[in-house]
């Protein structure tokens, strides 16, 4: 071919054509697969919610296994009795409350609108679980989770996940040994909604003391831990009025 590939004009045109071709190719891929990807994300959310209330397929002390994807829809229907949307003072039932995008709600709240707060009520072996979804900031990117509470606002189980925390350090928030520490802690300190802090040097590494509102931190993951503490505290305060009504019923 007798094209002078060193000319500036050729370089610019080549770059422009390449960007258009690659861009449209990627757009085509993304839009044709997005339905399938969204479906996967939906099932994952159901798995996470069930995991927090103790419905999972954990095999041993270290494993974190969800209900398998083919069973999750049925199990979700079986265990999650009610899904609520709390909007200011209004509480409505909505079977698709788990699809509410927390990030979007947060932006809308900043714009002055009333925030929709989803809450899931599960029932297993006669006891009730109030599952609060939450979202916060880790070191690199978003972290999120689900915390299951009982009638006395004591944690019965949690599930945490993250987008891009450091593998081996902050990423360990989704490890079993970390998540299991939260079970038995109360989010109340007296009558204050104190949440549960991820604390360094709390003199209780094996987490025997359950009334200190603290769990042992992960070494080398200070900022992820702080983000997690802040996330829990903020979220329980958002749900304060509803949680008060649960306590009052007791």
């Amino acid at each position: 071919m007798a094209v002078n590939t060193d000319k500036n004009s050729y370089t610019v045109i080549f770059a422009a054509v390449m960007v258009v071709i690659v861009g449209s190719l990627l757009a085509f891929f993304a839009s044709s697969l997005s339905e399938k990807i969204q479906e996967n994300q939906r099932l994952e959310k159901q798995q996470n919610i069930l995991y927090a209330m103790g419905v999972n397929e954990n095999e041993d002390e270290g494993s974190v296994n969800f209900v398998s994807t083919d069973k999750v829809a049925g199990e979700f229907e079986k265990y999650i009795k009610e899904q609520l949307v709390i909007e200011g003072d209004q509480i409505t039932k909505d079977d698709n409350a788990y699809l509410i995008d927390l990030q979007k709600q947060e932006t809308e709240a900043k714009a002055g609108k009333t925030r929709k707060l989803p809450l899931f009520i599960g029932e297993k072996d006669g006891s009730k679980y109030y599952i609060i979804p939450m979202r916060g900031k880790g070191l690199w990117d978003a972290i999120w989770g689900f915390v299951a509470l009982d009638n006395n606002l004591v944690v019965q189980g949690v599930y945490f996940d993250h987008k891009g925390e450091t593998p081996g350090l902050g990423a360990n928030i989704k490890q079993r040994y970390f998540m299991d520490d939260f079970t038995g802690e109360s989010i109340l300190k007296g009558t204050q909604y104190a949440g549960i802090a991820v604390a360094k040097g709390n003199n209780d590494p094996t987490n025997q003391i359950k009334d200190d509102n603290e769990v042992d931190a992960l070494a080398g993951a200070t900022i992820t831990g702080n983000g997690l503490s802040a996330m829990i505290k903020e979220s329980v305060n958002l749900y304060k009025s509803y949680l008060e009504s649960i306590r009052a019923k007791n």
């Binding site: 071919m1 094209v3 590939t5 060193d6 050729y10 370089t11 080549f14 770059a15």
Partner: peptide
Amino acid sequence: NIIPSKIRII
């Protein structure tokens, strides 16, 4: 043969 050598890494 058509990649401009100036921007080949990109």
